[in-house]
C-alpha cells in the first residue's frame, strides 16, 4: 500500500516561536491516524500545512492524494446560504449532494439556513461538504469539540461507518483521549510546543471499542504518557 502522505523532519515556526519540531510520519492508504496532543501544540497547523493553507520552514512533505476533504473544528458554513447551497458552493453535482446528505442523515434539511440547525447538524453539513468530492484523505480537525456526548458519539459512529464503506484515509487531530482511541487505528501522541511525536500506539483490536476493556487499557496508557510530559 502506498503512502498518502509522508513527512520528513518537518519544522514550522511562527517568527521565533518553534511550533513543529522535526516531525516524521508516514500515513498509508486507508489508515485511520489520530494525532493526540495538548491544546496549542500545533496539531491544526500541521493539518493546515497538509491542506496547503500554511507553509513550512524545513523538512520534506510528500503528498499523494487526489481529493482532500477537510472537516473544520467549527462548521464554517456560509450563514446566508441554505444547506444545499453551502454544498453547491463546493460541488455542482446535485446527485452527489443528495448522496452525501443521505450519508450524514440530513435529508429534508436542504432548504434550512445554518442558523436553523443545531450544532450537531451543522457539523454534519461540515462533514457532508468534506465528503462531496470523494476524498482520498479526510482530515478532521477536532470536529467534535463543540458537541455534547450523544451527538459526538453518533457522528463518530457515522464517520467510522463511512470510512468502512469508502475506505478513505482518515487523519484526525484531537486533545480528547477517548476520541483518539475510538477513531484511530494508530495514535500519535504529541508533546507540548515545540511539539514532537513522542509515542506511537497501534490499535489492533476491532469491534465496539466503547465496550471493549482493551479500550480502557489503551486510554490509561495514553493518560500515563500525557501526564508524564
Amino acid at each position: 500500500m502506498g503512502n498518502v502522505l509522508e513527512v520528513k523532519d518537518l519544522v514550522k515556526r511562527y517568527g521565533k516561536l518553534l511550533v513543529l519540531d522535526r516531525w516524521n510520519l508516514k500515513v498509508s492508504k486507508g489508515e485511520r491516524i489520530v494525532l493526540l496532543g495538548p491544546s496549542g501544540c500545533g496539531k491544526t497547523t500541521f493539518l493546515k500545512i497538509i491542506a496547503g493553507l500554511e507553509s513550512y520552514d524545513e523538512g520534506e512533505l510528500f503528498l499523494n492524494f487526489k481529493n482532500l476533504g477537510f472537516v473544520f473544528q467549527e462548521p464554517r458554513l456560509i450563514p446566508w446560504r441554505t444547506v444545499k447551497k453551502n454544498l453547491l458552493f463546493v460541488s455542482d453535482d446535485e446527485g452527489k449532494i443528495k448522496e452525501v446528505l443521505k450519508m450524514v442523515k440530513l435529508v429534508g434539511f436542504e432548504g434550512h439556513l445554518p442558523s436553523q440547525l443545531s450544532g450537531g447538524m451543522k457539523q454534519r453539513v461540515n462533514l457532508a461538504r468534506a465528503l462531496l468530492n470523494d476524498p482520498d484523505l479526510l482530515i478532521l480537525d477536532e470536529p467534535f469539540s463543540s458537541l455534547d456526548l450523544p451527538v459526538k458519539l453518533k457522528i463518530m459512529d457515522d464517520i467510522v461507518e463511512l470510512w468502512k464503506e469508502s475506505n478513505f484515509t482518515l487523519l484526525m487531530v484531537t486533545h480528547d483521549v477517548k476520541e483518539a482511541v475510538y477513531m484511530g487505528d494508530r495514535i500519535l501522541v504529541l508533546s507540548e510546543r515545540p511539539s514532537r511525536i513522542i509515542e506511537e500506539i497501534t490499535l489492533s483490536f476491532h469491534g465496539d471499542r466503547m465496550l471493549d476493556e482493551r479500550f480502557l487499557k489503551i486510554e490509561a496508557q495514553i493518560i500515563r504518557i500525557l501526564s508524564s510530559l
Binding site: 477537510f70 463546493v90 468530492n133
Partner: peptide, 27 residues
C-alpha cells in the same frame, strides 16, 4: 477568513467566491 480557507481547500472558482462570499458578505 475562515470562509476563505474553505475556498482554498476546495479550490472554489472565483465566480462562485464573488457571488456567494463577497456579495453575500456586503449585504
Amino acid at each position: 477568513k475562515d470562509l476563505l480557507e474553505i475556498v482554498k481547500v476546495y479550490k472554489i472558482p472565483k465566480r462562485k467566491v464573488f457571488k456567494d462570499i463577497y456579495l453575500g458578505s456586503i449585504v
